[in-house]
Design a protein around this nucleic acid. Structure first.
Lengths: 199, 199
DNA sequence: ACGCGCATGTAAGAAGTTACATGATTTC
DNA sequence: GAAATCATGTAACTTCTTACATGCGCGT
């Protein structure tokens, strides 16, 4: 399971399940997400496995917090995962599946709307990542060559998000262009056919 | 579930579970995959739902085939899914998670190896997609403007694969470059420090 | 009094993977 | 005779989502 390894990565500094959820939102949102209802049982299982230990401590406001920390076994497992080479999982893009079958609706205008809606949503997402990158560049000393390894790697994952989102936006534009040309071509064919009929 | 909608898309022409598995490998591999052990029970459930009907027919070679076809309800469900706008799911990239925590290994050379291994695997993948695109361009009449809608849309999904893989490869190169510069910088810092010590 | 943020979880189910079981026919 | 391809599935398990349950303390 990758989620447990990601949790191991974050737990190099002790944290509660609730903390980890916020950390997810803040830092790895663009390539991973997890619900609290998945995080809590996973932490429990990892403790049973011997990768984590936990202590209960009172909270400043609200109920007691269960704070987890990695054990040496957990640390070893993290290193094993990292040293195992890149793990490329199966990628699934539901919107590509939709486009793939879009001819069933038999209306190129709907496809065009679909692509425009997709482009808009991807553009919003890219703007979010750009804002995060600007924030890093502003705050990090010695950007980009003198960053500490940790920040360098984290920034690199953000760069991949920006590269791929730009590529997808370019693809949206390319596809929208081609759709427009196709539709223009058909309109003129229809007109010509109409003119022939009338003559 | 998206899998059932993808099956509905393919089942505009009747097919068996086994056929569908091969169709997946041939045509949507680059953005979706499914095992037979997932396809079979899903087809059964879809039939119970009223989206599909099935008939058993003898096979030319091997056991009887259960051939499915969409019902009007299934067709309506497909159209509902397609008309619902692009569904962007959560994307998960385990290799980005690995990179994000790679500083735990405390060795930039390992990160460099990791990025090079990733680049090589993505390059192989892109070459595969390029071969498929070349095949389409070779065989399809009137490429690219006069393609029928179905082929146009299918080709568009392939284009997205090519765009994003190129972007990821560019990102790999960018990151590898930056890592090299960082390592060179540190080596010279170490040398200078050594020289000072010796003096 | 009410809602929000903090903090913990459980339960049920959907989605997906891996391993196994079975048996025919065809190709080497 | 062995291996590959055709063809159907089940079982056990992992992973992830959605909905629900509980309760404290703070601000308005």
């Amino acid at each position: 399971m990758s989620l447990s390894h990601i949790l191991l990565g974050f737990l190099r500094e002790p944290a509660s399940g609730y903390d980890l959820k916020r950390t997810f939102e803040r830092s790895v949102r663009h390539f991973w997400s997890a619900e609290l209802s998945q995080i809590y049982p996973t932490l429990k299982r990892m403790e049973a496995e011997g990768w984590l230990s936990s202590t209960t401590e009172p909270s400043a406001r609200g109920p007691d917090r269960r704070v987890y920390a990695t054990t040496p076994a957990g640390c070893a497992e993290l290193e094993r995962w990292l040293a195992g080479g890149p793990s490329l999982g199966t990628e699934r893009f539901a919107y590509l599946a939709q486009l793939f079958f879009m001819d069933a609706l038999d209306d190129p205008a709907v496809t065009l709307d679909f692509m425009r809606a997709l482009r808009d949503r991807l553009a919003v997402w890219r703007a979010e990542l750009e804002a995060i990158e600007a924030e890093i560049e502003r705050r990090a000393p010695g950007f980009p060559d003198q960053l500490p390894d940790r920040v360098f790697n984290q920034h690199a994952t953000l760069r991949m998000g920006l590269h791929t989102l730009s590529a997808r936006l370019a693809w949206c534009d390319e596809t929208i262009d081609r759709l427009n040309r196709r539709m223009a071509g058909r309109a003129s064919v229809r007109e010509t056919a109409g003119a022939v009929k009338e003559a």
